[in-house]
Design a protein around this nucleic acid. Structure first.
Lengths: 291, 291
DNA sequence: GATTATCTGTGCAAAAATGCACGAATGATA
DNA sequence: TATCATTCGTGCATTTTTGCACAGATAATC
């Protein structure tokens, strides 16, 4: 009988397109992946990948079994969640993911506190940009900024996100209003059109903290979620007294339904939820320093 | 991430109810199974089996993931067939299953011949009583006696099976007719009621060859598929000249659809099919020695 | 065209998994 | 009750798998 674990290797190589990347994802040496694939091919007398100079490319034979492999992976995730879901110990791994700004400016101290409270729990923090897949158990607890999370996640909305316009106290606005926008925005954003008809794009950034420092440096006006500048509460950076309707996006603390009763996951979710609730007025923009 | 191969161990233990039997099925030492299950439990902090004196018993936690494990097994079988299905070599393993009487009295010489013709092919013969599951790749080629095979199997019907009544040439039939029947038949079988109203059950057997030797020993009359006594063609054992309509069951040579184009499987199927066709008149009861 | 980076395969040593053999515990059987 | 048969866990030797380090090959880049 084939080694079921080899399907895992096969799948990852098929997805990655080369054994190096697959090995990294699987957390093993690339030579292991190489040898497993070789073994799978030899044992079945089937060539699964063409060795092209840039890596591995699926053959037709491989495409024929690819769908089955995906199905197996999905069921394995179900099992993994099923098992963790019944773990009543306050120990083991928890993978937590959140936007890195939330961590840096809201929860760093609290996460540290949690680790002190539960030294038996190994808390792994993923603050990378990509959205972690809770169904695949890439994360057990997630803080997400989203209008509404999918059905298979449980948790609650802490509050809606409030945005505000911010500028440096020293910013001298003449006829043209310099504004700072997101890098992916090509045209003048609607908020600028509405409130600053004479706006001119002064800078594009792809990171919230960069936006903040740009504002602080006096480069222009930016629309930011209040929690960041208001946490830092720098004398230089002030909110402009223009009302913006609250965003339809909220701050959510979430877990997969299957992990509802898992002791450590529940503990972590409730703990972080509490922390966020303590910051509610911050998210609502009630602690701003105005111009 | 969990070791996907461990699910295989889990599933087999869940099915077997003890690690010894599971290990035997998996072809490994029982201590390996024991340690794998232990590891799976420890890594996930979940007890999967209660150790009862007679073996292992699934906990609720285990039942919750059992269905997923079955699904994974099925998809792994799909993959295994998918891979073998694209093997164009005339080498490797073939698992063949057939009723043991067919092997003993029809195909023993031919199987030997096939192995000589294709020394690169490792032909594994399963003549055990239980019906092998072709979907699970327990067998690649099967000779089956059946009214009609399931859709996912391909192959052909060699001929319908002809039965006949046999007796020893020396059998003296007085007022009562001694008959030999299958062990699971409780009442007088219909064939006896129809043709031998004065029949008396003289012996019950659970094996065709035993039935034959009983007939030869003069214990009574038996209804047997013609191929067996007619192959042996013993002077003592004669068919009674009573017509029996041909059975609705036929002799089939079969493979799984997925293995249609697999070179060695195709070769074997065609070869054995040919052998059976050469014996067609035997199955039709055209070579009987009559009383 | 030369250089750099990326990707892959392989020998060798270290690590992990496996098989074997034994002993303990329980259930079945005489 | 005593014996036998199953079943399971564990120490130890062996086998297998894995990681590491290096080398060769091709693509990308300068």
């Amino acid at each position: 009988m084939i080694n079921w674990d080899d399907i895992k290797y096969f799948l990852e190589v098929a997805r990655s397109g080369n054994i190096t990347a697959a090995a990294k994802k699987l957390g093993v040496n690339h030579s292991t992946v190489s040898r497993r694939i070789q073994a799978l091919e030899e044992q079945n007398g089937v060539r699964l990948f063409d060795r092209i100079p840039t890596g591995y490319e699926m053959t037709e034979a491989a495409s024929n079994i690819y769908e089955f492999a995906l199905e197996i992976e999905a069921r394995n995730h179900d099992i993994a969640r099923g098992l963790v879901g019944q773990d009543s110990r306050l120990q083991g791994d928890i993978n937590v993911t959140m936007p890195h700004n939330i961590l840096d400016y809201c929860l760093m101290r609290e996460v540290t506190r949690f680790k002190e409270l539960h030294p038996e729990i190994r808390l792994n923090l993923f603050v990378a940009k990509g959205v972690k897949n809770l169904a695949a158990r890439e994360a057990d607890v997630a803080i997400r900024l989203t209008p509404s999370p999918p059905d298979y996640l449980i948790g609650k909305e802490i509050t809606k996100i409030q945005h505000g316009f911010y500028q440096s106290r020293n910013l001298k606005v003449t006829s043209e209003v310099p504004i700072i926008v997101w890098g992916d925005e090509t045209a003048l954003p609607t908020w600028a059109q509405d409130h600053f008809p004479k706006a001119e794009i002064a800078l594009r950034v792809d990171d919230l903290y960069s936006m903040y420092t740009a504002v602080k440096a006096g480069l222009g006006i930016a629309k930011m979620p209040c929690y960041l500048p208001d946490t830092i509460a720098d004398e230089e950076v002030r909110r402009i007294d223009i009302e913006i309707p609250p965003s339809s996006w909220g701050v959510w603390i979430l877990s997969h339904v299957d992990l509802r009763h898992t002791a450590r996951v529940r503990e972590c979710r409730l703990f972080l939820g509490k922390c966020l609730e303590d910051r509610r007025s911050l998210f609502k923009g009630l602690e701003s320093l105005y111009v």
